[in-house]
Design a binder for these strands. Structure first.
Lengths: 219, 219
DNA sequence: ATATGTGAATTGATTCACAGCG
DNA sequence: CGCTGTGAATCAATTCACATAT
């Protein structure tokens, strides 16, 4: 079977949930596909199509209940349970993430912090103590960790990803600016700010350069 | 005219450039679409199609020169000049970014750090001193800043984005987990780790929940 | 009356097969 | 002969129009 929800839609469902949370906090009780599309930066058509891939949540003539749609999207996204998460790589970024205060709001709980550097092992990181990476498999087993932040340098990313996969982690959030290869059944999401900068660079000036100039490819 | 390079392709061009840099560092001189696709996590077909959108860089029978393709992709992406960048929002994340050592490798230079909090103004951030956000327009004008990292809390993101646009910034890298609306001509790229976690949550368990259950939408 | 849910139409992206160049 | 560059074919995503439910 094809994925139940297309990848492009999945990204937007996350956005809709975000908008719904804002609307809920503002006390709004109902929302139309029109307004939801507006706030999410897409069209009402798109909102309805996206929501249709996972159920029928609206009321014809009066739109969607903010509370119901919020709850149903959480269910679809698997955000009804708590997800224990580990951080691998306790450099500056890993430390900043360990200090991030409100994972709890989002159903994620930090359960482990790992590094291979003896200088870092034993260090405090948020409410945790940094452990050596060799303790990861036991932590995955004993603490039910299924996702990890990969916050090591690009040069170490593939090796660390291999260790994560071997330890049984099923989802990796890769902050390193490099492609990592994993076995089937393991999911990787990239968080790539350097790539974002480079895409901005293209948008801001790159395309002015004509793409027609021919080049000596042996040069 | 439609964009010269489709958005999906743009993301992959960034990846190809990354692979090329690794290959170059390893001393490899030529690469085939097959190997480039393999390393970039896509197909040889896709590589050739993507590269064809911006020029003809290869040699039939012998593949691509790593050095030439690296140089040409940089040109296409606009990475031949230096891009001055500002950070708006000097919380933990803004500070971590200000300390990031090797923007220089990627043709980006940090030129300003801004916040509205009087506690933060005057503070050191990397090699810079944090200035009040009201000084942003002058900095944009005088220092040629065209891109900014938006690293404020979600609740402040839209207001800060408005200030960035008013100041003349043309590209925003939005780290806040919220949708921001900007005028035409301003480009936003999202760097969204919470969204990444939520997409992982779906992939790891969300889709097991049947999407067929009907719900009372007035509930 | 109003706004959803959904088949149909359109647009865009990916895959393929092979022509064309080195 | 090998591998790129590219039109054609397939597949997916988006847009639209409207029937349908409240």
């Amino acid at each position: 079977m094809a994925p139940l929800v297309p990848p492009a839609t999945l990204g937007r469902l996350v956005t809709y949930l975000r908008v719904l949370t804002e609307l809920g906090a503002a006390g709004t009780e109902r929302v139309s596909s029109d307004e939801l599309g507006e706030r999410a930066g897409t069209s009402a058509f798109q909102v309805r199509k996206d929501l249709a891939t996972c159920g029928r949540f609206g009321t014809r003539g009066s739109g969607y209940s903010v509370a119901t749609l919020d709850r149903e999207l959480r269910r679809v996204l698997g955000l009804t349970r708590e997800w224990p998460v580990a951080i691998v790589g306790m450099g500056r970024l890993g430390q900043a993430l360990a200090d991030y205060p409100n994972f709890g709001e989002f159903d994620f709980v930090l359960r482990g912090a790992f590094d291979v550097d003896p200088e870092k092992v034993g260090m405090a990181a948020g409410s945790l103590v940094v452990r050596h990476l060799r303790e990861l498999p036991a932590a995955v087993r004993d603490e039910g960790i299924q996702m990890a932040f990969l916050t090591v340098p690009a040069s170490a990313a593939q090796d660390a990803a291999d260790e994560l996969v071997a330890a049984g982690v099923r989802g990796i959030l890769n902050f390193a600016p490099s492609v990592i290869h994993v076995s089937d059944g393991v999911r990787v999401e990239g968080v790539d700010f350097l790539g974002g900068l480079q895409r901005l660079s293209f948008a801001l000036g790159g395309q002015l350069t004509l793409a027609s100039r021919q080049v000596d490819p042996m040069a």
